[in-house]
Nucleic acid binder design. Structure first.
Lengths: 208, 208
DNA sequence: GTCTATATACGGATAGAC
DNA sequence: GTCTATCCGTATATAGAC
């Protein structure tokens, strides 16, 4: 009762710091973010950041692991769902990721550019390096190829295309907004269209 | 004669600093790079960096403008070549960019993540925000659609797909190397294959 | 042009009062 | 738990000798 009572109204201090940190780290990366800015954005004092999280590094690792975990747990679940067909997985992937990323458009650049600096973090989050390769999804692809239902294609090419079509628009968003897409709402509208279009394009690609 | 004589053997000090700065900025971004590291990598003293380039910021802007300029001048030339067909442009784009990026794989992440921080830099490099939209390339696409030679598609979807297929593998390279691609040479081999495959996939997509 | 030494500022972290 | 004040290392930049 004591302090959980207010939890739904005011976020706890710890949560306020995490939210501010998440936003800033995702936008500016580790080196580009100052603990003072996090404190200010969270509306608290700098000393509290160290009180709750010990150091900037520890706070960053926490945020990074949560971001990576969120990103990959969704991927894992879809890739290994034994009850959905190959085509359904493609549709789910495009739909789920585009929806998620429209809410958090900075995540892909954050993850990709910070994994480059600390590849070890990846391993900490994913128990297996081979979960993609050994997934139900790619097995289904191999099976279709064997049955002659689609053209032979290296699984990695397939992944690069599928993830490229889905994720690349978010990575290149700042550039696209200066290169043909006029507004945020235009961007959102295009991405909403892609939920339906990507599965169609991928199928066409495989039929070649 | 005096100092140009040695220019082909030893790079000038100015050039040594620029090379070191280019490498480090592209790998670690502006905030993640220390001027001391640049000086050390260049094999010169820290004071010389400021002697030649005034400040870290000025040096960074120089490198960034060169990188952006290189990236887009190639794009511009291919997009607006009046003598090549639509199909030839796709082939040229995949071929040229993959070749270039295999030599400088860090450039896309560098450009994309730093354009997010300073979108103005883009404007400084490209006199026109609309050169892509108004390019010969996209006019050729529109014409093909009008002639019924391919399915209607929003030019921006087309660009996201083409650039996504070409550039995304480089952006996600550090992740792919931990997620199915076993070595640098495997990565190179896959990308070499993509030079031929991307045009085929794109054509299939448009025929749907 | 190139170096050593140093000024100055800034960012991460802690001490200690409340 | 939260604040103010402060310490201390480090990063950019410059002064000045050679």
């Amino acid at each position: 009762m004591e302090k959980n009572a207010s939890k739904k109204l005011d976020k706890s201090t710890e949560e306020k710091i995490k939210s501010a940190a998440r936003l800033l780290f995702q936008q500016k990366g580790f080196a580009g973010t100052k603990t003072r800015d996090i404190a200010e954005a969270a509306g608290i004092n700098l000393a509290l950041l160290n009180y709750y999280f010990r150091s900037k590094e520890k706070l960053f690792e926490l945020i990074m692991k949560e971001s990576l975990g969120g990103f990959f747990s969704v991927l894992k679940n879809i890739f290994n769902d034994p009850n959905s067909t190959f085509e359904e997985k493609i549709e789910q992937l495009a739909d789920t990721y585009i929806s998620n990323l429209l809410l958090n458009p900075d995540i892909p650049t954050f993850i990709l550019s910070e994994v480059r600096n600390n590849p070890e973090t990846l391993l900490a989050v994913m128990n297996s390096k081979t979960f993609m390769i050994e997934s139900v999804f790619l097995a289904q692809l191999q099976e279709k190829i064997k049955q002659g239902e689609c053209q032979p294609i290296h699984p990695m090419h397939f992944l690069m295309n599928l993830l490229g079509m889905t994720v690349f628009p978010f990575v290149s968003k700042p550039m696209l907004l200066h290169l043909g897409i006029k507004s945020e709402s235009d961007f959102t509208a295009l991405l909403e269209e892609r939920k339906k279009l990507i599965p169609i394009w991928i199928k066409a690609m495989l039929k070649t």
